[in-house]
Computed example of a mutant assay.
Amino acid sequence: MKQFVVKTIANAGALAVAVGLLDKISLTGSSTGKKVGTLLVVALLFGLVNFLVKPVLQVLAFPLLILTLGLITLVINALMLLLTSWIAGKLDLSFHVSGFGTAVMGALIVSIVSWALNMALPDGKD
């Protein structure tokens, strides 16, 4: 359970960095607390999408994974970010990613920052 919370916080932090660096990823809200709450819900949603949908896409894209030496993973991550943005829109959350190019850059940022935060934050394993 502790590891789930740490990963969710790392995802929220990584999404916050992407929102801060890229103009076409937007997070709106009337207060900082509302933005933080939205980021946490979007991070949970992003984790759920990555848990349920990403493995299916990875299996379907396995030949491309071999052919591109793993670079298709960045495209899959971008699609997961776009799907999260679409679902967030359906749930009236104020998180939006505009365009595939922005999603690719956002996925790259989220992957790097999430990896770094997961390394820095304690996960409860000894």
Rank of each mutant, 00 (worst) to 15 (best):
G37A: 02
L69M: 09
K2F: 14
I87C: 00
G106W: 01
S31C: 14
S26R: 15
G13D: 03
F51L: 12
L81H: 01
H96E: 14
V42T: 03
V6N: 06
I66R: 14
P63W: 10
I109K: 08
A88F: 04
G37P: 07
F46T: 01
F46P: 01
K90Y: 13
S26A: 13
L83I: 12
D92I: 11
L83G: 05
G106R: 00
G29K: 05
F4W: 10
V104M: 09
S111K: 02
G70V: 08
L15M: 04
S98W: 06
Q58R: 11
D92C: 08
L67W: 14
G37Q: 06
L82Q: 08
I112R: 01
V17E: 00
P122H: 10
I25K: 01
I25P: 00
P55A: 03
T32A: 14
L121F: 07
K24Q: 14
L60M: 13
A18T: 01
L39I: 05
T8R: 01
S85V: 00
F46C: 02
F51W: 10
W86T: 10
S85M: 01
D126N: 09
S114N: 15
L79N: 02
S85W: 00
G20I: 04
I72L: 05
F46S: 04
I76S: 02
G47W: 03
G13R: 00
I112G: 01
M1G: 13
G99C: 13
V41W: 03
I66S: 06
L39Q: 03
A61V: 07
A12E: 00
M105C: 13
V113L: 07
V49M: 05
L39M: 12
V49A: 06
A116D: 04
M80V: 02
G29H: 07
L83S: 03
L65E: 14
S94Y: 10
F4R: 11
V42P: 00
D23S: 12
N11P: 11
V49S: 07
I72C: 02
L93W: 15
G20N: 15
T38L: 03
L121G: 08
D23L: 09
W115D: 05
L117Q: 07
V5P: 07
L69G: 04
L117V: 12
A14S: 15
D123W: 09
W86E: 08
F100H: 10
V56F: 14
L22V: 09
A61E: 03
T38G: 04
L52Q: 10
S114L: 10
L27G: 00
W115C: 10
M80C: 15
A43P: 02
L15H: 05
M105L: 13
A116H: 06
L39W: 02
A16N: 01
N77M: 00
L71S: 15
G99S: 08
K125R: 15
N77G: 05
T38F: 01
K7E: 13
G33L: 10
G70E: 05
G13H: 05
L40M: 09
M105R: 14
A16L: 12
G124P: 12
I25L: 04
V36N: 04
F100Y: 14
A88W: 03
G13N: 04
L21S: 04
H96N: 13
K34V: 15
T102S: 12
V17Y: 03
N50P: 11
L81P: 04
L83D: 07
V110I: 15
L44T: 11
V113R: 02
V97I: 14
L108C: 14
A43R: 03
H96A: 15
L45H: 07
